[in-house]
């Protein structure tokens, strides 16, 4: 296409997009400002760096045992949850991608139907409760084991793989298990990577299942600890612990600063990784939009 002059229209467009991005960047700078302020909020809500920056809030957050426990639990659930979900989703999707599998349409519909209708909050809660999963790590992994949506996307991908190669593997004596592990999965790394990332972000950000299924604070994930700190405004988590090693002459650190610092501590992994991973997610959107 021919290059045109950079006109007034361009300036408006560049400015508009720039402003949208600035609001996002500014939100994080504002948060940084608060987290570095000795009194939480400084005199001006618009300053980038407070008058007397201090790392006190971060020191408090890093010393806090709930935050670390939450980090540990979140890491465990993200790693474990993503791998378990990925394996089961891939297995189900693989079988349902086989046109010769008996009653394939029925089994597929059985799964797809759950995307459109559910028993609702309480019936699901009661099932989880009756299975004895309340207050177990399993409550964060099992009730969301397979997503019908992800399974459909993976099934479509597997269907695009040539069946002939599998048949020749079978003539060579390989069973379906071996073909699945040694042939299908390695061939499917693009789709597996995309879905694994979706699942991982989902686990990292998950909070509702912990809110309803977990009451034991040793099993709380980072998000739910943060929710306690930020929204329920419960000070006990951060401040009871701070009080434990507080000395009489220690300056009062406002909870606004603590909130901001804990948001940063919890978000750093995402802030650091998402720019490099975004293209895999973008690819996933395209795959999803092509679903049949």
């Amino acid at each position: 296409m021919k290059r045109e002059k950079f006109g007034v229209g361009d300036i408006v467009i560049y400015l508009l997009l720039g402003i949208i991005c600035l609001t996002i960047v500014f939100a994080f700078i504002h948060l940084l400002n608060i987290s570095l302020s000795p009194n939480g909020t400084t005199g001006s809500g618009l300053m980038i760096i407070p008058d007397k920056p201090t790392l006190d809030n971060y020191a408090k957050v890093i010393k806090n045992k709930y935050i670390w426990q939450g980090y540990k639990n979140t890491l465990i659930r993200t790693l474990l949850g993503t791998s378990i979900q990925l394996i089961f989703t891939a297995m189900g999707a693989y079988v349902l991608s086989k046109k010769f599998y008996p009653h394939r349409t029925f089994w597929t519909l059985l799964i797809v139907f759950t995307m459109f209708f559910s028993g609702g909050l309480i019936p699901t809660y009661l099932v989880v409760k009756q299975l004895g999963l309340i207050d177990t790590y399993a409550a964060m992994l099992i009730p969301g084991l397979v997503s019908a949506y992800n399974l459909t996307i993976m099934r479509n991908f597997f269907q695009s793989l040539p069946e002939e190669i599998e048949e020749s593997c079978m003539i060579d004596g390989a069973g379906r298990f071996r073909i699945f592990w040694q042939f299908i999965l390695p061939l499917s790394t693009p789709i597996l990577a995309t879905i694994a990332l979706w699942l991982a972000v989902g686990h990292w950000n998950a909070w509702f299942d912990v809110l309803i299924y977990i009451t034991d604070d040793k099993k709380f994930t980072l998000q739910i600890i943060l929710r306690r700190i930020i929204i329920t405004g419960s000070k006990e988590i951060l401040e009871s612990d701070a009080a434990a090693h507080s000395v009489a002459d220690e300056p009062l650190v406002s909870s606004e600063g603590l909130k901001a610092a804990s948001i940063y501590v919890a978000t750093i992994p995402i802030l650091c990784t998402y720019p490099f991973l975004q293209r895999y997610f973008v690819k996933g959107i395209m795959v999803g939009s092509l679903k049949g």
Partner: peptide
């Protein structure tokens, strides 16, 4: 297709237990 059935079984079991049993809870 016993090997395929074995791979599908946990997935179907999951959907029955966590999606269809709650529908009964309606």
């Amino acid at each position: 297709y016993w090997d395929l059935s074995l791979m599908l079984l946990p997935v179907i079991a999951y959907f029955v237990i966590f999606k269809y049993v709650p529908m009964g809870g309606i």
